[in-house]
C-alpha cells in the first residue's frame, strides 16, 4: 500500500511466543511517516510486546519488522539511533542518579537537543540532581519522556506516557507531543489507556486484542462511520436486521431497538424509514465506546 519512504513502521504477521504462552498472534501494522498513531487495547493485548519488538528488545518468533525502511532485527542499532523510546515502567539501575542518567543518554546518541531537554525539565519541574528513586511516579514518567524526546528522534515510541500524571501534566505532555509534530516528518507511536487524550492527537488508531490488531483506521473515519441508531417503531420492527450490510449488532431497549452500525449509516437509516412509523436517532460513538464494542469481538476488516 505505502512505499518504504512513506512508512515509519511496518509490521507483518508478527508472532511472539514466551515459553508456552503466545502473546502475539499475527500482528499487522503500518504506521505512516509524520503521523500520530495510537495503539489501544486492554492489558495483556500485546501492545508493550509489539513496541519492544520494534526496538529489538524482544526477539520475534515469526513475522517481519521494518522500521524507517530498515530491517528491524539486522539493523537495530542503526534504527535505535533515530528512535526515542519511553518504557512503561521506568527502570534504571539501583541507586541511579538523575545527572548520570542524563549524561549517559546524551553520550549514547549522535544527536541530542540539550536546549529542548533543559526547557522540558523546566516545564515539568524535573530536578537536575539527586536519586532517581526519590522521584514520584509522575516525575519518573516525565523523566522517561524527556529522555525519549532528547535525541530529536524521527520516530517516538511511547508506552503509557500518562502514567501517574495529573490533568495539568497530561495537558503539558500533549502540548509537547504537538510541538514534536511540528518537526520535520516526525512520527509518534503511542500506546495508552487514556483514550480521550489519544483522540486529541492521534491521526490513526489501532485496537489490539489478544495479540491481534482488530481495527486500524483513521480516527475521523472511525468516528464518522461507527454510530448507534436508536429506532422506535409504531408497527412491528423489521426482522433479520443483523444481516443488513453495515449492521453489527441489534439490541432491544424496552420498546425500541439499539442498532450498532459500522459504516453505511445513511443506507441503514434509509432502509429503516421504509418501515411503519419509524423514528430514528443517530447516536455518536466515542472512541471509548467503539473500543468497548470491539474489545470482545474477533477480527474484522478495517
Amino acid at each position: 500500500m505505502m512505499t518504504d519512504s512513506e512508512r515509519a513502521v511496518l509490521v507483518q504477521g508478527l508472532t511472539k511466543q514466551f515459553s508456552g504462552h503466545k502473546v502475539l498472534n499475527g500482528v499487522n501494522l503500518e504506521v505512516p511517516r509524520g503521523s500520530v498513531f495510537a495503539l489501544l487495547g486492554p492489558n495483556g493485548a500485546g501492545k508493550t510486546t509489539t513496541l519492544k519488538i520494534i526496538l529489538n528488545l524482544l526477539q520475534p518468533t515469526g513475522g517481519k519488522i521494518e522500521v524507517l525502511g530498515m530491517d528491524g532485527v539486522a539493523r537495530s542499532q542503526e534504527i535505535r539511533r533515530r528512535v526515542g523510546y519511553q518504557s512503561e515502567i521506568q527502570l534504571f539501575y539501583h541507586r541511579a542518579r538523575v545527572e548520570d542518567v542524563f549524561s549517559l543518554c546524551r553520550s549514547l546518541y549522535p544527536r541530542w537537543n540539550q536546549a529542548r531537554v533543559a526547557r522540558c525539565c523546566d516545564i515539568f519541574d524535573l530536578p537536575a540532581r539527586g536519586l532517581v528513586s526519590d522521584l514520584s511516579k509522575g516525575k519518573m514518567t516525565l523523566l522517561g519522556l524527556v529522555l525519549a524526546v532528547g535525541p530529536d528522534p524521527e520516530l517516538l515510541l511511547l508506552d503509557e506516557p500518562f502514567t501517574g500524571l495529573d490533568p495539568l501534566r497530561r495537558r503539558q505532555v500533549l502540548q509537547l507531543l504537538v510541538e514534536e509534530m511540528a518537526g520535520e516528518e516526525r512520527t509518534i507511536l503511542v500506546s495508552s489507556h487514556q483514550i480521550q487524550d489519544m483522540e486529541r492527537i492521534a491521526d490513526r488508531v489501532a485496537f489490539m486484542v489478544e495479540g491481534r490488531v482488530v481495527l486500524c483506521r483513521p480516527v475521523d473515519d472511525l468516528l464518522g462511520a461507527e454510530k448507534k441508531v436508536r429506532a422506535a417503531f409504531s408497527g412491528p420492527p423489521p426482522e433479520g436486521m443483523e444481516g443488513w450490510p453495515g449492521v453489527r449488532r441489534v439490541e432491544r431497549e424496552g420498546s425500541r431497538l439499539l442498532i450498532t452500525v459500522s459504516g453505511q449509516v445513511e443506507e441503514v437509516i434509509g432502509r429503516l424509514s421504509g418501515y411503519d412509523g419509524a423514528a430514528c436517532e443517530v447516536i455518536d460513538q466515542t472512541l471509548e465506546d467503539i473500543f468497548i464494542n470491539y474489545a470482545g469481538e474477533g477480527l474484522i476488516n478495517g
Binding site: L55, N56, L57, S76, Q77, E78, R80, R81, Y85, S87, I89, Q90, L91, F92, Y93, H94, C105, L108, Y109, P110
Partner: peptide, 18 residues
C-alpha cells in the same frame, strides 16, 4: 541481578548500543 532486574539492560538496549 545487576542488569536485568535492575533495568539497566533494558534502558541501555533501548538506546543505540549493540
Amino acid at each position: 541481578r545487576e542488569f536485568r532486574q535492575g533495568g539497566l539492560m533494558e534502558f541501555v538496549m533501548a538506546r543505540p548500543v549493540s
